[in-house]
Structures are given as C-alpha cells and as structure tokens.
Amino acid sequence: MLEIRNVYKAFGNNQVLNGVDLKVNKGDIIVILGPSGSGKTTFLRTINFLEKADKGTIDFDDIHTELQSASHKTINKIRKKTAFVFQNYNLFANKTALENVTEGLIVARKVPKEEAIKRAKDALDKVGLSERYDYYPSQLSGGQQQRVGIARAIAVNPDVLLFDEPTSALDPELIGEVLSVMKKLAKEGATMIVVTHEMSFAQEVASRVVFMDGGVVVEEGTAKQIFTAPKEKRTEQFLRRIVRDYDYVI
C-alpha cells in the first residue's frame, strides 16, 4: 500500500537520514524505535511532507512521486490519505475540540457540515471525550488534548495514521489513557506508523518493529524478534538501556 524508498535528508551539515526504506501493508502497526537523533521523527515527517526530503521516492496506492520534487497537488493528495498525531498535540487553540476535528472534514474534504459534525462526534466518542465537545484546548488536560489530536486524525478515515511520540509530552499518569486509545485503534485494524519510546506498546501491538540509528534502518522484524533476539549489536545496546527488565525478557 505504501512504500517509501531511499530517503535522504540533511539539516545544514547534519545528515539526518541516510537512505531509509519502509514498506507498509494495510493493517500494519509499525513501531519505529531508536535513540534520539536517529532520524525517526524526521523520517515520519517526510512521509506527509512536513519535512521535505532531499532525495527519495514514495509509492502510495496509485501515487508515485519523488519526495524532493512532489507537486503541491500530489503533496495535498498524500496528506489527505494520511493523518498525523503530534508530540505536543498542536491543537488549534482558537477552535473547540469538536471544531478541531471537523476542520479537516469541512474545509479540506468538503464534507457537508452535518455529516462532519456527526463523524467528529463519533471520533471524539471513540477516544472517550463525549463530554468535552465544546471545550477549548486550553481547558483540557494533556492526555485529553492528545486524544482530541487522535480524534482529529481518525475522523478523516486516513489510510495511514502517523504518530510522532504521542505520549512523550505527557505526565506519566496520563500516558495510559492515550496508549489505550491507540491500542483500541490497532485492534480495529487501523494502519499505523508509530514513533515512540513506549516499549510496552511496541511489545504488545506492533506487527513490525523498525530500529533506526544514525539515519538508517539498522534492523527490522517482529516485536518478538527485536526484543528477544536482536541480530544487531546496536539494537541490543539500545534495548538494554531502555528496557529495564530487558535481561528478564531474554
């Protein structure tokens, strides 16, 4: 369904991505792991052109384009097939929770207003915010804001959901509510690419785990493979640092 090949990206002299490939099939839950600075967030952002790659190609259903020279039209097409959940939510501060969700439906996809409101309410109900339709982002907790962010993403029925460290900015006690929403979506068959440090999430729901370091994919496999029998030394070192009970997992 989605295949991204040979992605290169540099910020000034800092080469962040050195030829990253990723193939995504419908229903895949792909978790990208890696130390900070490994380029995982940058890679995720090149998929929907929030970051313009220096080189690379993308095949998304029938769309084929070079990442560095995609036309505005193609970019908009791909953006409408994807949805992005940000680390710091990035909700529209001047819009209520409901308006945050309807915006992409009414304005970008020309969905009739009544239908959009219905779909937005469904999405908000799904993330457990049926009581918060008319609240502004500043009136919501971090966990609630991120769940609005997820509702905004799922309401447009995207082919792929992109999550950029969705729980990193949250207080520890609020992480659970966001993760459980994500797990629910995964069970319902959503296609997701998730950059995260939540190892439990990776172990529980990932159909594939991708380990990135130094701007390349070091290793790729099922969660079980990566967590119990990593082939690469770098993967093992990383997991040893991150997963406290790593030794027991073996």
Binding site: N48, R79, F84, F86, N88, E103, G104, V107, A108, V156
Partner: peptide, 13 residues
Amino acid sequence: HGQLEAALAIGLN
C-alpha cells in the same frame, strides 16, 4: 508553528 503544520497535515492548504 506546530498549529500550521497540523493544519497542513489535515489537508488544509
């Protein structure tokens, strides 16, 4: 800037 990115990501021009 994140709000601009979010708007672009949901398909607004």
